[in-house]
Design a protein around this nucleic acid. Structure first.
Lengths: 337, 337
DNA sequence: GTGAAAGCGCTAACAT
DNA sequence: ATGTTAGCGCTTTCAC
């Protein structure tokens, strides 16, 4: 590590000006050939790296973007991150990860990082803005792309999947197998993503003329243990379901775990459909039937949109909708008689 | 977003100097009371945030650290990250995530981020240095803490678990259940972590006087599908094992998945022990017997060590060894006759 | 306790 | 094609 050479050191050693060195190193095409090569060579030899603070201060850009999620601990976000990262790197940007844990203060902190020059733009996947009066106004024209979740009426560009449609497809699959008593464990309401998936469930049920009994729509929080608990409650009902559509895979794992403890066979006694297609879902036993999202693609699309905005492009009015796939595996079977 | 007020704006509005504003905002205790409060108030009112590039340039510190892993996609790292992050935040540092994908160029890039001022220190969890001649010398005195994996002879402080001891305990558990034909699916050799776990396996086998037949030590790469494939190969052997100690949970999931496909019961026909205790391991079916590491604690310990170094403390000579626990769950049972 | 002034390392406008 | 100069926004001596 030791000495950190600066542009001036290189310049002095070659008897040229600092400006020339800067130009040579930035491929500006403004430096002539005998000098150019010598500068590059010396820079490499001295192991020179430009100081980012100085450069960012001067250029007023950080060449970094912020990707903000609720919970870095959720493996779901990782493949999205990979998509974001690959696209960002290709454009010379680095990616900072932000983790809010649903804490409003931390949400604000990440928005602050935009204002203090830590990052030039943000991909927001928390599904909400900090609950502060007038907050939206203060960030309305910032370079922000909302992905995965939705923030209505904020005017930000969106990259999403059709949660409602995907949920409807999943429930229709269950209905097609002859199930009539189908329950839904949702995510936190009234968050839009949770509501959309629940709406898809309701739409499919209604279209098939099936009733949704009291207690068939317990509200969860996407966590494993909650799936377990809500499943138990479902089976304390006078008329328990024969199929459950769960709003995400993690809760679905909890549900299946609990069903097993209750001595019920999956899918013999109860069918289960999840949502997300985590990398473990296929190796789970039984392999989980679930809705698969193009995660890396979501990341790439969001980052591309953000790059457009940073380059001065306009913000797209219409959300980008990416397609989902229902992966039919081992946790769904015809309804028991 | 709009206007980004600077210190000068605040100063002018109050008729004080920029220096005073800077001092007031940094809690230096050098500004007297009538002024102090007014500055703070105006700063809040103007929604002021100091520009990080300018500050970092001036102070020559980024107040950020880099946590570099092989694969952000591995949920294993997430809880470590949480530990690192919590400790870092408390000390006023932010955490940048680095993802190498085992690519030497990317590894170098992250070291460069130390030199270009992006970060002040690094927590390295890749288990190796970039394979460049003289590389070690160039970073030998950088503020780097190695966690999880080990880099021998580099002189960096380490935060680790006793991989060999934990592996030996795991295998002894199997031996205690009466198993004699025990195979081990390892991680990539010759990486130290993989080798350590394999050594633990060998030590336990030898101590029990058990032979390790040819083909009983297939080498994997910690990935799900590899576990599947190597398991299949194991059962094409003339004398297949009755128990398998797998170097991580992800491969163990693959192994169990494959055993099921082969029509073998876990743990009735074959016992399996993993290593990591992922958050899904307990909900898996059968619940996985595995070695649990104190992940968040590893993150906290590593970050604390790094903070010490950044504060000018000495680098500890002896690695910090954190304790592991063998979680005995549902994938291990007495050996079949 | 506060202000004036210098300077962190870099890039960009202007000059030649 | 290269050099000179100024300045990004902040913190920190050094004065008073």
């Amino acid at each position: 590590m030791n000495e950190r050479p600066k542009i001036k050191d290189i310049a002095e050693r070659l008897g040229v000006s600092a400006a020339t060195v800067s130009r040579a190193l930035s491929d500006s095409g403004l430096v002539a050939e005998p000098t150019l090569s010598r500068i590059r060579e010396v820079a490499r030899e001295m192991n020179y790296r430009p100081n980012v603070s100085a450069r960012n201060l001067r250029t007023q850009r950080a060449m970094a973007v912020l990707m903000v999620v609720r919970d870095v601990g959720n493996p779901f976000y990782l493949e999205i991150l990979k998509g974001v990262e690959a696209t960002a790197r290709a454009a010379g940007y680095s990616v900072l990860m932000g983790n809010t844990e649903n804490d409003s203060d931390r949400e604000v902190e990440y928005f602050d990082m935009l204002r203090d020059g830590h990052a030039d733009g943000m991909i927001l996947m928390t599904g909400k803005l900090p609950a502060r009066e007038g907050f939206l106004d203060s960030v309305a024209d910032a370079p922000i792309v909302v992905a995965l979740e939705e923030i209505r009426d904020a005017g930000f560009p969106h990259v999403m999947i059709d949660n409602e449609g995907a949920a409807r497809d999943a429930v229709e699959h269950l209905i097609g197998l002859g199930h009539k008593r189908i329950a839904h464990i949702s995510g936190p309401v009234p968050e839009i993503m949770s509501v959309s998936r629940r709406n898809g469930y309701r739409a499919a049920m209604q279209a098939a003329g099936l009733a949704i009994p009291d207690g068939y729509e317990p509200v969860g929080d996407y966590l494993l243990h909650t799936g377990q608990r809500l499943c138990r409650e479902l089976f304390e009902l006078p008329q328990p379901p024969t199929a459950i559509f769960v709003a995400n895979d993690e809760m679905a794992f909890g549900v299946i775990h609990e069903l097993r403890r209750l001595g019920l066979d999956v899918p013999g006694d109860v069918s289960v459909v999840g949502f997300d297609d985590l990398f473990l879902s296929e190796a789970f036993y039984p392999p989980l039937t679930t809705v698969s999202q193009p995660r890396a693609e979501i990341g790439r699309a969001a980052m591309n949109m953000l790059l457009d905005m940073l380059a001065g492009g306009l913000t797209p009015r219409k959300p980008a909708m990416l397609p989902t796939t229902l992966k039919i595996r081992g946790t769904t079977a015809p309804a028991p008689k």
